[in-house]
Design a protein around this nucleic acid. Structure first.
Lengths: 203, 203
DNA sequence: GTGCCGGAGTTGACAGTGTCAACACGAGTG
DNA sequence: CACTCGTGTTGACACTGTCAACTCCGGCAC
């Protein structure tokens, strides 16, 4: 499937170029610039995406899939459900911090994205891993509690993506995420008194 | 100062038009469309804003000022610091819910906005009211704790601005904010055991 | 009152954008 | 071989933000 036709695999090349440009330039390049980057004419991408919107949709969905993968990888290293939860939340925030422009695109409130089923599915799966993580901690209404955590972690990721100019004087920006994640885990601990971890910490 | 010159007050008219269009159409109109809406030529706005960026800066700053005002108004009705805090957080989220496009512009991660002193000042003042609210609850490191709350509330506001398609099955979207705000207030209560409110609730 | 200055608004142009219609290539099948 | 059709190209359209050069007109000095 390498060089069946003229370009090779223009669709994948466009997506790659878009992802990279987001990381490097901070925003999605123009349709034409993207075509230029792949050394094709300005209208060639229309054979693979009906729209600029459609391309954005594909990019956003890809980002969500990577987020899910990142969280899963991070949680896999732990057994204790609370540790897993903390690790997952941390990975989530890290994702936003490392790929601010991806994150912005993913949660950017664009109609096309919000209404697209591919993006919805990809984001639902990411959200599902969070709900599962909370449920594993023995919380009763894990769905509702997961939402609260998501708010905190999403806010943190979004703020981190914006540069995280620490608004807390005398505090290193790097320390801030830990405090937020601690609040989250503590909140879940308080909601799930049945399942006390036997490993970490004295109390 | 009403009709000193040709238009009347084009600068204010442009800002108004921009704010309204954000609410009604969900996004900032183009420079030219804005000029059209004010019935002036395409380049007339250049006499009041050097740039499209400059106009966005002015709009964003105005939004931050309105946010601050909304929070202050909401907290003014209460005396108990925890009630004030809850009211302020609620007003914050409400603001995002009611003016999603304003909120998106304010926290949209645009260089021009992040680096602009007017926006920085306006957002710092909004943030200051939150820190004060937390400090009034008797928390020791109020700045750090306020940050955690801000994350949760900002995340919630951002999600609410995106439409708040409740990810919690069987839960009404309207109930979700309350849960998050309760988490926040509970967290502050836990950090400030010295100052137990005598009014609400038994414990 | 006359003349002028300068802020405010206009016109026309430029390069850039997303998109469309019409065309050209070239690999695959009959 | 001829035909089809997926892929890529060319040229054009209306639109955008921005600039330089122009016009307008209210308020000031004389």
């Amino acid at each position: 499937m390498a060089s069946n036709y003229h370009h090779g695999d223009l669709r994948e090349a466009l997506l790659d170029a878009a992802l990279n440009a987001l990381d490097e330039h901070g925003e999605l390049p123009s349709w034409r610039a993207l075509a230029r980057a792949c050394a094709v004419s300005q209208t060639a991408p229309y054979r693979h995406f009906v729209n600029f919107d459609a391309l954005q949709v594909a990019v956003a969905a890809a980002c969500f899939r990577r987020l899910t993968a990142a969280v899963r990888t991070a949680t896999a290293k732990f057994d204790d459900p609370f540790e897993r939860l903390a690790a997952g939340l941390t990975a989530y925030v890290r994702f936003g911090y490392r790929h601010p422009s991806w994150y912005e695109l993913m949660f950017g409130r664009k109609r096309v994205l919000l209404e697209n089923v591919e993006v919805q599915a990809a984001s639902a799966e990411a959200y599902g891993t969070l709900v599962n993580g909370v449920a594993a901690c023995g919380v009763v209404d894990s769905a509702a509690q997961a939402f609260s955590l998501w708010c905190a972690v999403h806010g943190l990721a979004d703020i981190a993506a914006s540069g995280l100019r620490s608004p807390v004087p005398g505090t290193r920006p790097a320390d801030l995420p830990a405090a937020v994640i601690e609040m989250c885990v503590a909140h879940i601990r308080a909601q799930a008194p049945l399942l006390r971890p036997g490993k970490k910490k004295g109390a």
